[in-house]
Design a protein around this nucleic acid. Structure first.
Length: 615
RNA sequence: GCCGACAUAGCUCAGUGGCUAGAGCGGCUGUUUUGUAAACAGCGGGUCGUGGGUUCGAAUCCCUCUGUCGGCUCCA
């Protein structure tokens, strides 16, 4: 899903893929080549070395060979030939993967798997005509099937670096031979490459798995299982503060909290349509008492429909809005789990509004406003993706309903002046979505909140309300989550903040340090801690037998927003000189406060959810 | 799930067939009583992820399982 790249950088990256393949062929003459496209920030090439395996240790040799080719300034030359000649070229050069691509081109006019399937079924596609001639590009002794474009010669490719090698199935299909995919990144100038590598370095430092460990936020246990994070007291503070924020944003806009069990009979999902589509991702639960087939809930909407359905509803009651921040369980494939980004126990800050057609617009506006408030408070920029259906039959409901739903979402986004782009094939099976993408502090974009319009589920569950004219009508369901999943959001948020959490959600807001271990010093510090706790502050005391320097250092490492040292001066009634974490301070000047002033200011700050300190 | 790499103390990591497996940090104890990013000394701490195999001998070689990481694929 890479954004559109300017032609020049695209050509550079694509040319580098050829140069890399050429270098690998020089070093391993028997290499069988797959495809070598441009991806976000760079390129890759899929290679098959038979019994041999490439490793990152080979990168230096490959890069050296690439440097030779680049230095030689070989021109890229386009060659056209009849597709049958190309097939025999592939045979002569023992390139079975290329031959397969050529055969597809000849047969169906495309190498794209999706279009190929359509062609096989006899469905007309855009590139329907069979291809008669194909283009090749040649540089030096290397020739490759390729649509182009390329730079004019091998010395015009900018700056690059080989990054990693990974397994990849030929054409992405399990069962096909596994090839090795060599990734490189490339930019127009060495400076841009440097900046990109620096960003990766920074991302590594911020890795939420590393910070989760260092800041004692969450752990995993082999006995509990993979993808099942356990949150420590610190991590729990963080997640509960964020969830509270999300809940408050919705409560203030008319949502009522509901509560549901974590399992259900599978009948619920058979009715909703989830079972047919997602049955293999559900955890099954066995009852020892009844014959019920139970499952752990993988989503909450069907449960919520049953609260709505519990009695007849009047149009006067609508909108009926439920919010529920609760865990769902999905049996994700083990290879896909990682840190908090992809887990099997997923907390959703879920909400479902049941509305009349004339209330859709207001409802969507409310939710867009909530999302905006949340992310501006968290210091993240939002843009939205309008996730539409595509032409496949993977969706429920009539096309007319879809078209009108998609139009309403788009209008709401335009009315709210949100930056947006549209993408087909990203919709939920029951309706189109507005997906929010948040940019973090180092420029990466993550999918977070979502607003979804659903005409399908109310119908399947027979949800109704009695309209003004006495007729029974289906309400429309608006699904929304502001964080999406708490776990995934935490992975984003921890990396966004680099563990420097604002006062309102910092697990530890104030650390009190005693300058020595004299009983009166310790007692004084303990007394202040009690006062702070009475104001609802999260405070800790360090009166260990260490130097002040060491204790300050420790507080810094734990990224505590405020650190205050207590000694003779403070005990004697002197004012405090709180040490403010660097990213929070609005000015360099330290100011002094009485104990009461200080604690009240911090408590106030935490309540207001501000991101910079007012001290 | 698939391919590949990896798993040694709470953490970060040394140790590649041969004595009782090591270091730094953290922890504990003592000395010190400390003023804004590391005082000093001592002491603990490991079934070398699990189970099996090869060998006179395994942290080290082979297999299984579990977990982690990088990808593929997927993500309601």
């Amino acid at each position: 899903m890479s954004d559109k790249q300017p032609d020049q950088i695209y050509a550079m990256r694509h040319s580098l893929a050829h140069i890399m393949a050429s270098s690998i062929q020089h070093l391993w003459p028997n290499v069988k080549l797959g495809v070598g496209p441009v991806v976000e920030n760079g390129f890759y090439y899929d290679v098959d070395l038979g019994d041999e395996q490439l490793s990152e240790a080979d990168f230096a040799r490959i890069e050296a060979e690439m440097a030779k080719i680049i230095k030689a300034a070989e021109p890229f030359e386009r060659i056209e030939m009849p597709v049958l000649d190309a097939v025999s070229w592939a045979e002569q050069n023992e390139q079975p993967y290329k031959k397969e691509l050529l055969n597809d081109l000849q047969r169906a006019g495309t190498t794209v798997a999706k279009d190929l399937d359509a062609a096989t079924l006899g469905v007309a596609t855009e590139g329907d005509s069979k291809v008669e001639t194909v283009s090749f590009y040649r540089n030096g002794d290397f020739t490759d099937l390729c649509r182009g474009p390329h730079v004019e010669a091998t010395n015009k490719v900018g700056a690059f670096k080989l990054m990693r090698v990974a397994g990849a199935y030929w054409r992405g299909k399990e069962g096909n031979p596994q090839m090795q995919r060599v990734y490189g990144v490339a930019f127009a100038t060495p400076k841009e490459l440097r900046q990109y590598l620096d960003m990766l370095e920074e991302a590594k430092k911020r890795d939420h798995r590393k910070l989760g460990q260092e800041l004692d936020l969450f752990v995993f246990s082999d006995l509990v299982g993979s993808g099942l994070p356990l949150f420590t007291p610190r991590g729990t503070v963080l997640r509960e503060e964020l969830e509270r924020f999300s809940n408050e944003l919705r409560k203030s806009r008319g949502f009522d909290k509901v509560s549901i069990p974590h399992m259900t009979k599978k009948d619920l999902y058979e009715k909703s349509g989830h079972w047919a589509k997602f049955g293999d991702e559900l955890f099954l639960v066995k009852s020892q008492e009844t014959s019920d087939e139970l499952v752990l809930k993988p989503m909450n909407c069907p449960h919520h429909t049953q609260i709505y359905a519990s009695r007849p509803r009047s149009y006067r009651e609508l909108p009926i809005r439920y919010l529920d921040t609760t865990m769902v369980y999905r049996d994700e494939k083990t290879g896909e789990l990682g840190g908090l980004s992809r887990v099997r126990s997923i907390t959703q800050d879920d909400s479902h509004a049941f509305v009349r057609p004339d209330q859709i617009e207001q409802q969507i506006d409310d939710l867009l406003a909530s999302a905006d408030e949340m992310y501006s408070t968290l210091g993240m920029k939002l843009r939205v993706r309008l996730s539409w259906r595509d032409d496949s039959d993977a969706y429920l409901g009539s096309k007319e309903l879809w078209a009108s739903a998609q139009e309403q979402l788009k209008n709401a986004v335009i009315t709210n002046k949100l930056e947006y782009f549209e993408q087909e094939g990203e919709a939920a099976f029951y309706g189109p979505k507005i997906d929010f993408m948040a940019s973090d502090a180092i420029g990466r974009e993550h999918q977070v909140a979502t607003v979804q319009l659903d005409f399908v589920m109310p119908e399947r569950f027979g949800l109704e309300y009695i309209a003004e004219d006495g007729s029974a009508q289906h309400p429309i369901m608006v699904h929304c989550a502001l964080m999406g999943s708490t776990e995934r959001f935490l992975s984003v948020y921890i990396e966004h903040t680099a563990g420097r959490f604002p006062v309102w959600n910092a697990p530890e807001q104030i650390r009190l340090i005693s300058v020595n271990q004299e009983p009166e010093t310790v007692a004084f510090v303990e007394k202040i801690a009690v006062q702070a706790k009475a104001l609802g502050l999260r405070v800790s005391v360090d009166n260990s037998n260490e130097s002040v320097g060491k204790k300050i250092r420790s507080a810094e490492i734990w990224r505590v927003p405020y650190t205050v040292v207590f000694g003779e001066k403070e005990i004697g009634g002197g004012e405090l000189m709180p040490r403010i974490r660097k990213d929070l301070a609005v000015s360099e000047d330290a100011t002094s406060y009485t104990v009461t002033e200080f604690l009240k200011t911090v408590a106030n700050e935490a309540k207001m959810r501000v991101s910079k300190t007012s001290l």
